[in-house]
């Protein structure tokens, strides 16, 4: 697991059924592109987050494939509809096989 990886997610605490809500996510990750060289001229191996998913009560909202052109500390903003109260689950997949998860509850009236 890459060191010091920390996710951050912004989801409204409540919404009305069927309402469109805006979600923002950020995760601290260096997103080493595989294009850079170290001081000795050796290529620094690629090490990025290659996939990000957002699901709500088991149903998918967005599934993103990331390439090295995504900036350090990847940021996403997107919109979801919430039919009922429940839980958002956000998952980031690292090149090294580790995953990072964050869960946010939302109350729907």
């Amino acid at each position: 697991m890459a060191s010091g990886v920390k996710p951050r997610v912004k989801v409204p605490k409540k919404a009305s059924a069927g309402e469109t809500i805006t979600i923002k996510t950020l995760i601290s990750h260096k997103m080493e592109s595989g294009q850079r060289k170290d001081d000795d001229g050796n290529v620094i191996p690629r090490s990025i987050i290659n996939r990000f998913t957002a699901d709500f009560n088991g149903q998918n909202v967005i599934d993103v494939t990331l390439e090295p052109a995504i900036s350090t500390n990847p940021y996403f903003q997107f919109e979801a509809v919430v039919p009922e109260s429940g839980e958002f689950k956000f998952t980031w997949y690292d090149d090294d096989g580790s995953t990072y998860e964050e869960v946010k509850k939302i109350a729907v009236s």
Binding site: K6, K24, L26, S28, Y75
Partner: peptide, 12 residues
């Protein structure tokens, strides 16, 4: 404060 990427380090 969410769009500001520095805030993730404040969380740290």
């Amino acid at each position: 404060d969410f769009d500001n990427p520095a805030m993730i380090f404040v969380d740290k």
